[in-house]
Structure formats: C-alpha cells, structure tokens
Design a protein around this nucleic acid. Structure first.
Lengths: 250, 250
DNA sequence: CGAGCGTTTGATCGGTGTCAAGGATCGTGG
DNA sequence: CCACGATCCTTGACACCGATCAAACGCTCG
C-alpha cells in the first residue's frame, strides 16, 4: 500500500509555504491561496499527471510523493528534465500556456491537489503579490533548469551524478522532508540515467564507485550521503541556483 | 562600426510586442509598459550584461543585437544555456531573484534598455495583466530551457546542431528579423560548441557535413537553411515548445 | 516461495574529445 | 589600397569516455 491515508482531508497549506518562502504574503493573500477551489486525488507510481500535447484545465500541487517531467526525443529516448518533491507546484506552466510541452509522471504513489486554471488567474489578478510569488516560483524553476542544462552538457558522468544527489538533498532538507545526508528518493537507475543523460549501466558504475569511496550510497528507496563535503566537491555543486534565500528585503 | 545609429531614441515598443504576443493587453496596459522609466546603452560584442553573483537593480531588454546566457562549471568549461535575439526581455529573472545565477553576455554589438526593478514590480502590481504577460514570458523561457536540456542530454551531435539552427530560424522569423531559411546569427563555432555541449572541432564537422549534404550552411555572420524540411527531420525538431500560438481564448 | 523487476558486472564498440598544424578571413593600421 | 596580426575555421590522427550487448544475480512484493 501507499502512505496516504484514504479519507484524509488535504489543504493547500504546502502551496502557501512554498510561495511565502520566496515572497512575503499578507494574511489576506495567504487566506486567498487557501481558499482556492481544489480537488484531491491519490495515484500510484508511474501515473501521468500531464501528457505532452494536453490542454490541461487544472494546475496540480504535489502534496505527497515524487514526480518528474520528461520529454521523449525522436528515436524514443527519454530525457527527464526535472524532479519534483512534496510541496512543489508541478503544473503552474499550463495556467498560461495552452498546450503542454512535456510529460509529467509520478515517481511514487502520490497525493495531488488540482486547482482550476481560472481560479489561479483570478487569484493573480486580485492578489498581485500572490501572482508575483507564483512568478518567482517559475523563475526559480527556470534557474534549476539552466543548471540541469549545464550539468548534462558540461560535466562528466561522475560529477553529474553527484550533482543531482546534492541538489535533491538540499531541496528535501529545505522542504522539511529529510536531511541532506539521508533522504527518501524512490528512483530507479533507469530513471536516474534519463535524468542525467547517461545509460543505466553507466549510472550504476558511477553509483558503485561513489559508494566504494564512501561518498554516497543509493539504497532501496533512499539516498545516504556519507561525506557531504566530498560529494559537493566531486559534483561541482553550489546551491546558489536554488535561490533559497528569498527576497532580501521584502 | 555597429548598426545602431548614435543618437537615436529607443522605446519599449519591442517589449510591448513581445508581451502582447502571449497575453492580450488593453491600451492602458500597453501604455503603462511604454511609460516605464528606462535608460538605453549601446555596447560592443562580448560585453557582460549580468555576471553570476551580481545583484542587479535593473532588468534589461535587448533592442538590437544578440546575447546569450551561460554558466561556468568547475573545470572552467562553459555551457551556454540560452540565446537571445532583439526584442527578448533578457533579464526579467532578477526582478524577483536577488542574486544572478548565471552570466549574460552579448554575442554582437547591441542596444540595451534598462528598467529599474522597482518599476517592474510596481507595474505588475498595478497592471496584473502585464504581470501575467511577464510571467508567461518566463514560462516560455522555461519551456525552451527544458528543450535545451533534452537536446543536450539525448540527441546526437548532428541532431543537436540542426535543432539549434531550426529553433533560431523560427524565433528570428517570428520576431520579424529574418526568414527561417536565412537569418543573421553572428556566432562562432566555439560558442556554438558551448551551446550544444560539444567541442568546437566536432561542431565544425557537423556543420561541414550539413553543408555538404545541402541541408544548411553557416556563413560569416548568418545561417542559410537550404532544405528546411530535411533539417527539421535531422534535428528532430518541432516548434511546439516555443508556444507561439498565444493564449487560445484570452 | 516464486516471478518480475531492478541491479551488477564484463567485454567490446563507437561517437565525440583531444592534440596538432595549417589555412582562411576580417579588421586594423600604415 | 595593401600588409599584417589576430581570430576563427578546417582537417587528420589518435585516445577515451560512455554506450552497447549480454548474462547472471538479488531483492521485493505478492
């Protein structure tokens, strides 16, 4: 079975937390977010949240579980372009873009809250600060995406792999879902390979070598980072691009 | 010397055009954009518009010329993560993100308009539709960035190169700066290599082969695409991710 | 306990990188 | 208008990282 309890009532509190982390929101603004209409659904691993070519009418917030975005290229190969954890607003894109340019799929059983696009647009109109917070969220995602491009384009397999483990560690810790040195991450080596632009075989070799050298280890559904500083070094990692700081004075 | 005439007065009309292409704006909204305070400057090729680590106080609109964003990884290699043409709002990011996570440099002599961040924030507050339009622009950039990640991660050198030529062709045509089959693009093979995650030598080989087969040719400061359909095929290209359509009904 | 999926390992292949040298082109200054 | 220097392009030979192919192993979950 999966973690989410059957009949539990979910709220948009994680979305509020996500947004306030970047832009200060008044009590009224926060209340407006919480008052958004939504429906919840619980899905299994591998479920599609969005398909390329879709014209979604709702945006989705990931409340529990993991998900990833990916694109399929001409010869059938898959590139995973981002990974999402609980609290991420996964499908804000399509509030303003008519047709989806990529697929989103769950990496684990998940709980998803769906919000109609018109409600999001109305919210942004009536509460500009919230609109700004959602825009900022999009900007941070853009920054992460740039780093992924650089990671795949210019780092060797070993560094690439380490870099991803570091990023996820920091994001999980920040979201209160684990420690950077140890967090849940139910991904297969096949999926890792597609996220890193490598083959599963080579990912396996990198993971084995990182483990053998006491840097990090991929367990069944989790990651354990034994030597954070060393992994940061190997992965050429700096978390600046995650823009955790928030706005300096706002 | 460079194209821009010395004392000419520039306006934010290109920014209005860019924004209205995605979201319908009222006359008042458009006027508000045009009324933004700005200063213009003319710079030579290779000038930095933003440096990683900067805390910019202005956003920049590229009025004439070309620019690119890039990141430098640990061993000194450079990854170009995006390319920008006249009309692009290059530095909207830093309106909401305190510190820049990447560098922006001109690819040619350029004319740049600088707008103070506070003016952009005020504009978004007072004209939510404009805020939405800027947000949408960010979303489209995100989409392009995802495609670049997939391009670099999962396509062979030949396809990668072709894909970039197609993208630029479509964007230039859309912006009214040329035809997809022939457009100005003053980039060196070194820079192309850094945009594609390849080496200059290998980019050269791909270009020569594309040229030998009558698909496309890189001239001095321009691109000529002799067989668009064939290049699209080789490059596994589809322009959907550029989201040209605009909002269906808005 | 068994089936299926995911992981691990070895051997070999190939695409792209590296190194090196020569050639073309452009912009500059005389 | 020409000469020159710098940058960019081009080509070949060779090396290497990561891909491919193939097979066995182990773990989970039902």
């Amino acid at each position: 079975m999966q973690s989410p309890s059957p009949q539990r009532q979910y709220t948009l509190a994680p979305m509020v937390q996500k947004l306030t982390a970047g832009v200060a929101l008044s009590a009224a603004d926060q209340a407006a977010v919480l008052a958004l209409p939504f429906t919840s659904r619980t899905v299994g691993r591998g479920s599609y949240m969005v398909r390329e070519g879709d014209r979604p009418k709702v945006s989705q917030v990931l409340i529990e579980g993991f998900a990833f975005r990916h694109k399929i290229v001409g010869d059938g190969q898959r590139q995973i372009v981002s990974v999402h954890i609980a609290g991420d607003i996964v499908d804000l894109q399509n509030a303003l873009l008519a047709v989806s340019d990529h697929n989103v799929q769950t990496l684990s059983p998940a709980v998803i809250l769906e919000i109609p696009h018109h409600a999001i647009e109305a919210l942004a109109d009536e509460h500009p600060r919230v609109g700004r917070a959602m825009w900022r969220d999009t900007l941070v995602e853009g920054s992460i995406q740039r780093e992924w491009t650089a990671n795949v384009g210019r780092r060797c397999a070993r560094a690439r792999t380490s870099h991803l483990l570091c990023e996820l560690g920091l994001r999980m810790e920040r979201a209160g879902l684990g420690r950077r040195s140890s967090y849940r991450f139910p991904i297969t080596q096949d999926e890792l390979a597609d996220a890193l632009g490598l083959t599963p075989v080579h990912v396996n070799r990198m993971l084995r070598s990182l483990c053998a050298e006491g840097l990090a280890e991929k367990r069944h559904q989790s990651i354990a980072i034994a030597d954070w500083n060393a992994l940061v070094l190997v992965g050429d990692f700096s978390g600046d691009y995650l823009h955790f700081a928030g706005e300096a004075a706002n």
